[in-house]
């Protein structure tokens, strides 16, 4: 009982995650809390069992002979086949639900859901197979999404804004606006990761990938390359700036002007 409440308390009150700044971050954190709670209960339970057994059943000085010759117990074994099976089933169903909800708002599974990604390597395939996430896509939101082309190379990210036709080294995004990143690598595999968005997608040479999400909190967050890409992998970082709609428009305009005047 104490174990149960201890696990629940830890799961609810210990925060191990950074700030959440995208629409799917709260959903992720919900999943994390559930996993942490279950994990803590199971782990502490196991530790208590092992330590208790070691102390309670230790061999006292002078004690001889064997323990009880118990070779098994069918009902006990069925019980602890059932415990992990039920836990795993629950976690699986729950995370499937989370996955659906994340996919419903900002599709994680970029394959199936972006109709505009005609160049995308797997999109047709994904639509045939993908019952997951693809059907739950909200199309109006999709059409409203801001498209940005991401190019990754050793050792930088470049962000191309089709709207102003310019390239930026920093990703600027308006708050509460859905975004579609179309990503491709020029050399080796990289990965686009923003911990505050709880999202990661590999950026692969020869196979464009897509990442859809909605930033919800203004601020500056790190963009981190998460796939070993060479000596300066650790230094391959950029910044995403989430700002209000007006600042974003100003930034967009100022950059557009620069790039047109250069032409």
């Amino acid at each position: 009982m104490g174990l149960l409440f201890g696990g629940l308390w830890i799961g609810q009150n210990i925060n191990l995650l950074p700030l959440g700044a995208s629409a799917n971050a709260p959903i992720y954190d919900e999943l994390f809390k559930v996993l942490l709670t279950i994990g803590t209960i199971l782990f502490l339970g196991m530790v208590v069992l092992v330590v208790y057994s070691l102390i309670r059943f230790r061999r006292r000085p002078g004690q001889t002979g064997d323990g009880a010759a118990i070779e098994g117990n069918l009902s006990l074994e069925i019980l602890w086949t059932a415990i992990p099976a039920i836990v795993v089933l629950f976690v699986g169903l729950y995370s499937y639900d989370i996955y659906e909800r994340m996919g419903g708002m900002q599709p994680l599974n970029h394959h199936a859901n972006d109709a505009s990604s005609h160049e995308h390597f797997n999109s047709g395939n994904g639509r045939i197979w993908g019952g997951i996430g693809s059907s739950s896509l909200a199309t109006p939101q999709q059409s409203a999404a801001i498209p940005i082309d991401v190019t990754a190379m050793q050792f930088a990210f470049l962000f191309h804004y089709p709207k102003g036709d310019f390239i930026s080294g920093e990703l600027h995004l308006p708050k509460n606006q859905p975004v579609t990143l179309r990503m491709e690598s020029k050399d080796v595999i990289h990965a686009f990761w923003v911990p505050e968005f709880r999202l990661k997608q590999d950026v692969i040479p020869g196979q464009p990938t897509i990442l859809n999400f909605t930033p919800t909190k203004t601020g500056r967050y790190p963009i981190i390359c998460a796939e070993l890409c060479g000596p300066y992998h650790g230094g391959m970082r950029s910044t995403v700036v989430v700002e209000g709609a007006e600042e974003y428009q100003d930034w967009l305009l100022s950059n557009t002007k620069v790039s047109t005047s250069e032409k």
């Binding site: 196991m46 069992l49 092992v50 057994s53 070691l54 059943f57 230790r58 061999r59 004690q63 002979g65 064997d66 323990g67 009880a68 118990i70 117990n73 006990l76 074994e77 602890w80 086949t81 415990i83 992990p84």
Partner: peptide, 16 residues
């Protein structure tokens, strides 16, 4: 999981 529970059950009631 079965294996781990079985090991704990092996500890249980032994003379360790």
């Amino acid at each position: 999981g079965i294996k781990f529970f079985n090991w704990v059950a092996t500890l249980w009631g032994g003379k360790i």
